[in-house]
Amino acid sequence: MRLVPSVFFRPFFRRFSHKANSNFDLRGVFVPIPTPYQANGNVDYDALAANFERWEKIPFKGYCVGGSNGEGPYLKAEEKLEMVSKVRSMIGKDRLLIAGTTCESTKLTCELSKAAADVGADGVLVMTPFYFKTRMTEDSMHDHFISVADACPAPVIVYNMVPVTGIDLSVQILKKMALHPNIKGVKDRDMGKLASLVIETKNLDFEVVAGSASYLLAAMLVGCSGGINGLAAVLGDPLCKMHELAVSGQWEKALTLQKQLVNIDLLLMQECGPAGLKVAMDLLGYRGGLCRLPLPQIGAEKINKIKSELKKAGFL
């Protein structure tokens, strides 16, 4: 029997149940979309629509709403659901839409994941709860993700984001989670773990994706399906081209592109964060806009460094 959504989420539910995309797979490049904000802190949907006019011309596999680069922790649950619904109307039916639905409790994660599926998400991306990280066990983490997968009508992707959570899920526990029919993949940043997960789950309906564009090619070389990469928001064309070349076995050509992307990815994703990514978007004709407070803007020195790196790589 279908669970009745809580009153908290009910205003954003459609009058019909969203059915998960039957072609759900992670073979390609996904954009974890940055959230543009107005000066008053509200989401700037006009800017978002302008960005999608460009993104939809690039052969992305799909998009992720409410992730780290989208400043997901700064969005209320209602805002995340509103974004999922609005983004679904901005993109083609052939594009997959993944919603970040991480909450600290299992109950809230289940509720938000179900609600996201009902307003248009084809899948959900869930990080490990981390507030009580020293109290967590692998068994408690396993039970958490299994509960979400049981409750959510859309596929679940496990997001093993150690720099944020301080919790590193082992290959063994991730393989155990992969046995669940509704846990379809994992996003990770560790190359050794990515390779091991590909080997350990090769006979399962489960895919492994890279969390950074700086090593996407290496990840594909060891068998990863693709990536959910923040750099795709500004340099989607070369990333998708690199993925296409790798899939067709043209590794040398793909390597040339990968070398162009490494330094700018490290600068934007690791050194500067969402504010730096938005600066790069503005420089390249997108509408990056402001970050939501308390996340600060970056200074002139970093802006000049981003300009320099984009020029050096041949993108500006």
Rank of each mutant, 00 (worst) to 15 (best):
L3H: 14
P5D: 05
F9C: 15
P11M: 09
F12H: 15
S17M: 13
L26N: 02
R27W: 14
G28C: 09
V31P: 09
P32G: 09
A39W: 08
N40C: 08
N51P: 04
N51I: 05
F60W: 06
F60P: 04
G66P: 00
S68W: 07
S68N: 09
G72W: 00
G72Q: 00
L75H: 06
A77Q: 12
A77W: 09
E79N: 05
K80Q: 13
K86C: 00
M90S: 09
I91T: 07
K93Y: 11
D94T: 07
L97P: 01
I98K: 00
G100T: 00
T102K: 02
C103I: 02
C110G: 05
C110M: 09
S113P: 06
A117E: 06
D118F: 10
G120E: 01
A121P: 01
V124S: 04
V124K: 03
V126K: 07
H142L: 13
S147T: 06
A149W: 03
A151P: 07
C152G: 05
V156L: 03
V158K: 02
P163K: 03
V171S: 11
A178Y: 04
D188R: 01
R189F: 15
A195R: 08
I199M: 14
T201M: 04
K202M: 13
F206G: 05
F206C: 04
E207C: 05
G211V: 00
G226Q: 05
G226F: 07
A233H: 01
A233N: 10
D237S: 15
H243N: 07
W251F: 15
T256N: 14
Q258L: 06
N263K: 14
N263M: 14
L268Y: 04
Q270S: 13
G276R: 03
G285Q: 07
G285I: 04
C291E: 00
Q297C: 13
K307W: 02
K307E: 08
K311M: 15
K312M: 12
A313F: 12
L316K: 01
